[in-house]
């Protein structure tokens, strides 16, 4: 028994002609393409708008009222954080898998992209927390001491809660999607490299 018989079984397959409903397939691709762009884009836009709103709040007193100019530091940090999120959106769009390379090359680039995404997500909490923390600290310092109770009862607990939620969500996303994806890609890379 030799491999030629296997080859002849393979060659005996009837040529495939019009076995696929191409119209239905193309319609599905169009709708999926749009749905994907909507979901991912919406999350990033909400994050950027939130940071821009926070920056506007920090800039309001210094620019409109003309006092507490030190709050502009927190406002500037919020703008930088918004720019960071937007640059990640641009970079993500560019990280579409490029099939110019061999399968091993594609796997390695995908692995780089996953590692990059993990680092960005893990650092995001600090990018978001830093301007908010600075702003809170400055505001607490300059506010009328009679109103400091608002910080202890509302602003600081709200900030801690939102940071904890963000940290938990990022950890969950990493555990459920990125870490398994990374393990799978590493396994595939190792199998390709083995003899």
């Amino acid at each position: 028994m030799c491999f030629e018989e296997i080859q002849s079984i393979w060659n005996s397959q009837k040529p495939v002609e019009k076995a696929v409903d191409e119209t239905a397939l193309l319609n599905w691709i169009r709708s999926r393409d749009q749905a994907f762009a909507r979901v991912v884009g919406a999350t990033e836009i909400v994050m950027v708008l939130t940071l821009l709103f926070v920056a506007a709040m920090f800039f309001r007193d210094p620019l409109v009222e003309g006092h507490d100019r030190i709050l502009m530091v927190a406002g500037l940090m919020s703008l930088l954080a918004a720019a960071f999120v937007w640059s990640g959106r641009v970079a993500r769009r560019k990280r579409v898998v490029n099939y110019d390379d061999s399968l091993l090359g594609i796997v390695e680039k995908s692995l780089d992209a996953v590692n990059y995404q993990q680092r960005r997500m893990q650092s995001f909490v600090w990018w978001f927390a830093a301007p908010m923390s600075v702003g809170l600290l400055i505001a607490w310092w300059i506010v009328d001491p009679a109103k400091r109770y608002l910080f202890y009862t509302i602003f600081i607990p709200g900030f801690v809660l939102s940071m904890a939620l963000a940290y938990w969500q990022i950890g969950r996303e990493n555990r459920r999607n990125l870490a398994p994806e990374k393990a799978r890609l590493e396994g595939l890379r190792d199998r390709l490299r083995q003899g």
Binding site: S12, Q13, K14, V16, K18, V20, D21, L25
Partner: peptide, 13 residues
């Protein structure tokens, strides 16, 4: 979608 309009090949081999 049920894209494949028919079984592509019936040969058991």
């Amino acid at each position: 979608l049920g894209l494949l309009s028919k079984q592509v090949d019936e040969d058991p081999r």
